[in-house]
Design a protein around this nucleic acid. Structure first.
Lengths: 210, 210
DNA sequence: GTCTATAGGGGGATAGAC
DNA sequence: GTCTATCCCCCTATAGAC
C-alpha cells in the first residue's frame, strides 16, 4: 500500500479531500443547509464519489461531527487532567488554547452547539465525555479549593460555564457584536487576543481564587 | 373591523396562529431544517394557507426573524438608555431580565446567532441597532466610569461580551454542559436562577466597578 | 378563507460506462 | 476509482373547487 504510492505524496487522497471539504462546509452551514453538491464542488470531485466513499450524507456527517466533538473535548480533557498544573494554570491554558483554536476554526463552536441541539445530544453519548470530566483532576482541585475556602461559589458547573462563556461567546456572537459596535475584523481579533490574558484574571477575580 | 369580530375573541386569527407556529418551529429547528409542512401541522391548518397569508417560506421567515431580533434588542436598548439607573443597576436588570426571557424562550439565542451567521448579518442592517447602542446612556456611563478610574478595562465591548456571555452561554451550551455534568433540567434551571444574583456580583468583581 | 390536487424543481442516491 | 446520466422522493408553491 505504502510502497505503491507513487502519486503526489504531499497531497491528500480523494477520500481525505472529500472529508476535508465536508468538514469545511458542514462547519460553515450545518447539516440541514449543506447540499452534497456543495461538498463535491468544494472537494473538486464528482458528486457520485461522495456516496462511493461514504455511502450517504448522514454517514459522512456523523464522521465529521464525532471527530469535531472529540477534537474539541480532548484538548479540554488533557488540560483538565494534568496532575502537575494548578487550577489557575489550567484556566490560563484553556483560555489561551481555545482562543487560538477558535481563531483557526471560527465555525466550530456554533456548529457543535447547533448540531448537538438538533440531535438532542444523541451523538454525544457515543463519547465518554461525562466520565472524562467527572473523574478529572480539575474537579478534584476545584472541590479542594472550595473546602479550603479559596473559591466562593460551590458549584463547579458555574465555574465551567463562566470560563467557557467568556471564551466562546464572543466568537459565537461575533456578527451580532460587530453589528452593535461596528468594530472591524482586525480590531475584533485584537480584542480576542487581549482576552487570552484577561480571562484568567477575570475568572480569578470573579471566583475569588486565593 | 373590531365591531364585526364575533369570532371567539380569546383565540387567535388564522394568520396569527400560523405566525405563532412558524415562530415556534423556526426557533427550534432554524430556517434550513424546517419544512413548511411542520409549520402547517403545528398551526393545525392546511399547507396552502401558509402561502395564502405569507406568500413564501422566506417571507414568513423574514418576519419572524425581524420580530425576534427586534424583541431581543429592544429590551436591551430600553434598559441601556435609562437615564436614571446606574451602570450597576443596568447590569442587574439585564441579567435578571434576560435570564427570565431565555427561560421562557430557550431556543431564541441559538436561533438568532445561527441565522444571523447564515445571512452574514444582512437582516441585521434592517434594524437601527448600531445607533441604538452607540448613542446609549450605557456607553456614556461606561466612558465616564473609565475616565474616573472606576472600571479597569477601557473597551466597552469587553464589558458587553462578558455580560452577554455569562448570561447567554449557559443556555446555548446547555446540552453540552448537561452531557458533561449530568445535571437534570430541574437542577439546571435552579443554577440559572442563581445566576441572576451572581452575574452582577461577578461583573462587578471582574470589571472592578467601584 | 380554506380545502384538495398537483405542478415544478431541487437534492440525495444509484446504475452503468469508462 | 471516477465520471455521466438519471431516478425518485420530498418539499415549496400554485391552481382551482367549495
Amino acid at each position: 500500500m505504502a510502497a505503491k504510492n507513487n502519486e503526489k505524496s504531499a497531497e491528500l487522497t480523494t477520500e481525505e479531500r472529500i472529508k476535508e471539504a465536508a468538514r469545511k462546509v458542514f462547519h460553515r452551514k450545518g447539516f440541514a443547509a449543506t447540499r452534497t453538491r456543495d461538498i463535491a464542488d468544494e472537494a473538486g470531485i464528482n458528486l457520485a464519489l461522495l456516496n462511493y466513499y461514504f455511502r450517504s450524507k448522514e454517514k459522512l456527517f456523523e464522521i465529521i461531527m464525532l471527530e469535531t466533538l472529540f477534537g474539541f473535548m480532548q484538548s479540554l480533557a488533557l488540560i483538565m487532567n494534568d496532575e502537575k498544573s494548578t487550577l489557575q494554570t489550567k484556566v490560563e491554558q484553556i483560555a489561551s488554547g481555545y482562543i487560538d483554536f477558535i481563531i483557526e476554526n471560527p465555525n466550530v463552536p456554533l456548529f457543535m452547539l447547533s448540531e448537538i441541539r438538533a440531535n438532542s445530544g444523541g451523538l454525544m453519548n457515543k463519547l465518554p465525555i461525562k466520565q472524562m470530566v467527572s473523574n478529572s483532576v480539575f474537579l478534584k482541585q476545584h472541590r479542594k479549593a472550595v473546602e479550603e475556602g479559596k473559591i466562593a461559589e460551590p458549584h463547579p458547573l458555574h465555574f465551567l460555564m463562566n470560563l467557557l462563556g467568556l471564551i466562546v461567546f464572543p466568537f459565537i456572537g461575533k456578527p451580532l457584536l460587530q453589528g452593535i459596535s461596528g468594530v472591524s475584523d482586525h480590531q475584533f481579533k485584537k480584542l480576542m487576543m487581549q482576552r487570552k490574558k484577561y480571562i484568567p484574571v477575570w475568572i480569578n477575580a470573579m471566583m475569588k481564587i486565593r
